[in-house]
Design a protein around this nucleic acid. Structure first.
Lengths: 342, 342
DNA sequence: CTTTGCACTCTCAAGGGTAGAGTGCTAGAT
DNA sequence: ATCTAGCACTCTACCCTTGAGAGTGCAAAG
């Protein structure tokens, strides 16, 4: 179905096109291939490749460029990855290994990745799949409002302002907090609410004022706040410098997609399922806006657990052989860095 | 120095150019002006305006466009502001008046402003000029680290992780927190540290273990964190749709400026000095990247105090008469909204 | 002071011509 | 059976020209 020679020439063509960005003609390919074949022979092979849907001509006399399907074959079976240079590794290490604040770390990783690849980079912020309560605290504010401070997952602080039916005094709130801390510390936050409601049913009759306070507070505090996932984008301005993407309207749509967040998140969600590097070429991502773009993602995590996804977005003819190992390496180093922090 | 007629025609020219984006010729202006003057006469006047540096021709046969100096004169002395439409007011109100979370409010304001003006919008996040401590809490973490939670300015929660020389137990930390809360609640955070150091000097001899703990905690917790100011940018993709800015490299530089934040912050800092709406035309902003852009800002605040700056960035030929009142209105409504929240 | 008339300049879009690149096909060479 | 050479053909990109249109500045007349 695809001869040895066909494969070789196809690979060369893709590499050449990625390097130059110009459609590749038979003469060029003949020269490159060192096969001592005439351009005419090459043309026959190229005609076959075109029949297979791997390459196409932008117009009659303009060499060939890979199709999305062609890129797919290339990255799947014939790409020779170029290991990151020592300089790149050093760079990645310097930015990732030293940072100790998680959210700064993620931002910095994204930044580093977009600078090293010269593409737009996305790092998804991990959504903790469990939130165990460590401590809760209430402070009265004016106008029947209470500030609730939760410490969750050992070190993460959340706070929210809750509106209450009546005003509560400091000591009432303190008692309620004490009770909740004692009864529910270490429990999953989702379970706290349930637990309380059960408690309430059991002790309905003799419920004292303190318990009532605790229950009102908890009801309003422990509402689920599965905040929609977040992600960090950096280096999207790099895309403006890439000449074949200078279709400004198209570019604008992609930028809008970053802003809208919905599509990008959905795309990243797809990627979090699989382990390791994944490549979406052109419309494989499922989004029309990305038709001229490819997305290279990798999951990152500590130990066996996937925490999130990171990746880059660039033109379909990005240098996969360089980008893929960079994304992979970054993901692994980020995972390692997080391991020591979480 | 500038005749009545000169002024009239100049104003017409600017308005026309802002509306169309095409250089304005003498014939067009003659028709517009309803002055019953021939184009030739108009030409003479235009020659004068050109001598004054208010307008210029892009090339020999292409009508005239306002210079930066021209825009300056226009906005200073002859612009007739168009009051925001009821729809705009409604829109602004809907987005601003209902939000109760400050940071969401600012983001939403920026978003609304860029949508209403179709330009890029910036809202600077106010830096509180005082931070009074309400309460502090310590939680032990692993590896000689302690999580400090501060409640500041009545309702704002900050937290930081501090590394300590030895490990502390929960009760030690609780005592230290109790002491600090009792001694320093309501005080300026900057003063807490000083106060503690003084205290330490006084009681050097008989300092007990609890006090030592309190002091170590406080030293590490109350380091100044005048976090550099922040701002929110939205709608910068709007700029891509404006045809005269389709010089992609230039646009890229402006986007980079948003990312780098330094220049934009400095620009906003300039604006926070003055009260009310300010207009920076072209390079008046002091930044070369913004040479084809104008910036319209306004300070916002509650009562007499300026809390921050917001504004829009767009092409020099933006519709000032519409944008200026919108920025002004937004700033005042944001100020009002904040008043009820702070 | 204003207008008319006119020559001039410049841009923009359309048209035509050419060079170059690359193709597909066929017929002959290996 | 496979490869090559030759060739006619197609298409783009670039350059040049050309003409229309817009707008100008100037001089002379109203």
């Amino acid at each position: 179905m695809l001869s040895e020679r066909g494969q070789l020439l196809f690979k060369l063509l893709v590499e050449r096109y990625i390097a130059d960005g110009e459609p590749v003609g038979s003469r060029t390919l003949a020269r490159d291939s060192r096969l001592e074949l005439s351009p005419a022979t090459i043309r026959n092979v190229m005609a076959d490749l075109e029949d297979l849907g791997l390459i196409r001509s932008p117009h009659t006399s303009a060499g060939r460029v890979p199709t999305a399907q062609g890129y797919r074959l290339f990255v799947d079976t014939m790409m020779t990855v170029r290991e990151p240079t020592a300089i790149d590794i050093e760079r990645i290490n310097a930015d990732i290994a030293t940072e100790t604040d998680v959210s700064v770390l993620l931002a910095r990783t994204s930044n580093m990745l977009s600078e090293v690849t010269k593409l737009a980079s996305v790092v998804m912020v991990p959504r903790p799949d469990h939130q165990s309560l460590r401590q809760v605290e209430f402070l009265p504010l004016s106008d029947n409002r209470v500030l609730a401070i939760l410490v969750v997952n050992e070190r993460e602080v959340q706070n929210r302002i809750i509106h209450t039916a009546r005003s509560y005094g400091p000591s009432e709130l303190e008692q309620a907090a004490n009770y909740l801390n004692q009864a529910f510390a270490g429990k999953e936050i989702d379970q706290v609410r349930e637990g309380l409601l059960r408690e309430m049913a059991n002790t309905r009759a003799e419920m004292d004022r303190m318990m009532q306070t605790a229950i009102e507070m908890a009801e309003k505090t422990f509402v689920s706040n599965r905040t929609g996932d977040e992600f960090v984008v950096t280096g999207h301005t790099n895309l403006m410098a890439i000449d074949e993407l200078s279709n400004i309207e198209k570019l604008r749509q992609v930028f809008e997609a970053f802003n809208q967040r919905r599509d990008i998140l959905h795309l990243l969600d797809q990627a979090i399922g699989a382990n390791g590097v994944q490549i979406f070429i052109g419309e494989e991502s499922g989004y029309e806006v990305l038709s001229d773009y490819s997305v290279v993602t990798s999951t990152y995590g500590t130990g066996g657990r996937n925490l999130g996804v990171l990746g880059v977005i660039g033109p379909t003819r990005m240098a996969y052989s360089r980008v893929v190992p960079l994304v992979d390496l970054t993901a692994r180093m980020l995972g390692a860095a997080l391991k020591s922090l979480i």
